[in-house]
Design a protein around this nucleic acid. Structure first.
Lengths: 346, 346
DNA sequence: CGTTAGCACTCTTGAGGATGGAGTGCTAAA
DNA sequence: TTTAGCACTCCATCCTCAAGAGTGCTAACG
């Protein structure tokens, strides 16, 4: 839909003012604070038109206007001016990432926390998807208890997963190292995704060597355990507390809905894994298909190394969100995170 | 302070009724629902006495009574009747623990979730303290990037910690295995706590072998990394959402206070690590020294294997808590958790 | 013909005041 | 010592009312 220049400026003014104050915006306010060179009456007329076109809404007859989801969408797509971060903020973010060398998991948790500190919204970070990452090393370590061992899998990018195994009586501690080696030689470079198809082949290969024939069943079990790791990327959630500051969640029932949503890691994972795989996504209000966040906006961005997509970070807040700033923050943080990952994990 | 039999029964009635309804309890209600064989007027007199002694409080003149922290304390210490779990509930809990074999971390997360599902409160679980646990295995695994390696430490009980290391140019990938072996031979059986004192000694020992002289500095660095693992047991928090159902947190400002508290992992760790190390702890209202939970009760219980204390699990809710049930649940869950740990990790 | 001033109208919000109910404390009788 | 009766207190709810913000409409203006 085409908008006149003046309508665009008024829509932008309404969005900006509403994001700032959280109160419905009246024609007088806009006339006063944004000098458009026209009177409140004119603005009133334009606002009535914008409402009819679906960009604005009126909570009740004698209140000001607030942007509709569609209004926000138009603002984000056509009106919003990019708002870079100040050098101090950039410095602050860079510092946080360079403070310590961390394993990927801790790095992501730290990223989510950082985001929740520099924005008034709730931050999420999704682990790299282990199903696509290649296996770098598989180790089976003995535990103190007889016939228990720990399966540790290190995937590309320094992700570590571990599971406890119960070994059959036929396997002794001394065998574990050899089994590890054998597994390694076959599995190194595989992705967990490949594993399903490879499973049979791997078993055959190991059968050839003869040595571990007794263990084939067990190796199958190990692979089964490996496969279990697939598709359950952890989601790090920080700053749930932030949303209490947002006036739209003063209403307890709405707050409950949102918290009920945030309580389900599975739903968060879906939210972050939704396409596209790459780049920035903005979902405003009803554009979110998930239950309980139809009054929220979710902005996500991918991070990664060397063009491979590793995972996503994102922010969740009310539709009345400071889009320009949030996008700048996310872009800068994702970029910094990617750099650190590249630096330490190639 | 000594209470008459009748006073005890009235106090117990007030606590039970208040826990049930959340409304201040009047004399008539007690006379009707708990047949004490006396009239409301008599109960009124006794309640006035109980208030004077500090067991009860009155929100305002013409309201019923509610228990004070002290009243709850007396109830918990002297009046509460243990309330066992139904066979169905016991079965349900046992099943949850036997469903899958999990690494300790996942097991604790699962425990917290279980607790938050079968009680209307917020559940916490504290990891075993790695500083006291003995090291079972140390492994340095190469990463794909040159001069980056992953330090994996497995401690007693199957806890796994890992950190990314930056190796100096003088160390090659081939050395890592040997270094791991050397470290292992010295460190196996150590606790991380011992490490501080052992550090110097370990370095000396390794110097004797001669072979790794160049690496002594690096080994020192590794030990430093190991020490970093100490004292930061993770806390698993589940069911924050539950507290919204509690009427005492309808008040937004109180809710904020509590959520601000729950947001600090450090505070939760302090809360769970507070003495005693062993057994059940009940802290009611002001007995909690931490800011933000002076209207809450915290009940914790230790879990462990073979008499060693491993960690704690606990529940946090309003002082108006169903103590008898919560205690039974915690005891049963801690016992089940301990059994699973014993079974898999000795 | 677009823009603007003026004005009546609508709706929310908060304060003030009346009402009913729940529960108490006190007194006097059993 | 216990209980019935009663006056009293305080909260919660509802209603009303006025103020304030903002609109839509109309008519006048350039």
């Amino acid at each position: 839909m085409h908008l006149e220049e003046r309508q665009k400026r008024i829509l932008a003014a309404v969005v900006q003012e509403y994001v700032l104050t959280g109160e419905p915006v009246g024609s007088r306010t806009i006339a006063r604070r944004y000098n458009l060179g026209v009177s409140p009456a004119t603005i009133r007329n334009e606002m009535a038109d914008l409402e009819e076109m679906g960009f604005l809404e009126q909570p009740h007859t004698s209140a000001g206007r607030i942007p509709s989801d569609y209004g926000y969408r138009y603002y984000v797509d056509h009106l919003m001016e990019p708002q870079g971060l100040s050098p101090e903020e950039q410095e602050h973010i860079r510092r946080r990432f360079q403070q310590r060398v961390l394993a990927v998991e801790q790095l992501l948790e730290e990223t989510a926390r950082l985001l929740s500190e520099i924005t008034p919204y709730t931050a999420m970070a999704l682990e790299p998807n282990p199903s696509r990452a290649k296996i770098e090393e598989v180790q089976i370590m003995p535990l103190a208890v007889p016939h228990r061992a720990l399966l540790v899998v290190v995937t590309e990018g320094g992700m570590v997963e571990h599971r406890v195994l119960t070994l059959p009586p036929s396997i002794y501690e001394e065998d574990l190292e050899k089994i590890s080696e054998a597994l390694n030689s076959v599995l190194k470079g595989c992705s967990l995704d490949d594993l399903k198809e490879l499973k049979a082949q791997v078993l055959k290969e190991m059968a050839k060597t003869g040595e571990y024939k007794d263990l084939l069943g067990e190796v199958g079990l190990l692979l089964h355990h490996l496969l279990f790791l697939v598709g359950n990327e952890k989601v790090y959630l920080e700053g749930v507390f932030n949303i209490l500051e947002q006036p739209e969640f003063r209403d307890l029932s709405r707050l409950k809905e949102l918290l009920a949503f945030l309580d389900q890691e599975e739903a968060l994972r879906r939210l972050l894994k939704a396409p596209p795989r790459r780049g920035l996504t903005i979902r405003i209000g009803q554009e979110n298909r998930e239950e309980g966040i139809d009054r929220c906006s979710v902005i996500t961005i991918s991070y990664g190394v060397e063009g491979k997509i590793y995972g996503k970070v994102g922010l969740l807040g009310p539709t009345r969100m400071h889009y320009a700033r949030v996008i700048s923050v996310l872009q800068y943080v994702a970029q910094s995170l990617s750099q650190v990952l590249a630096q330490f994990y190639g």
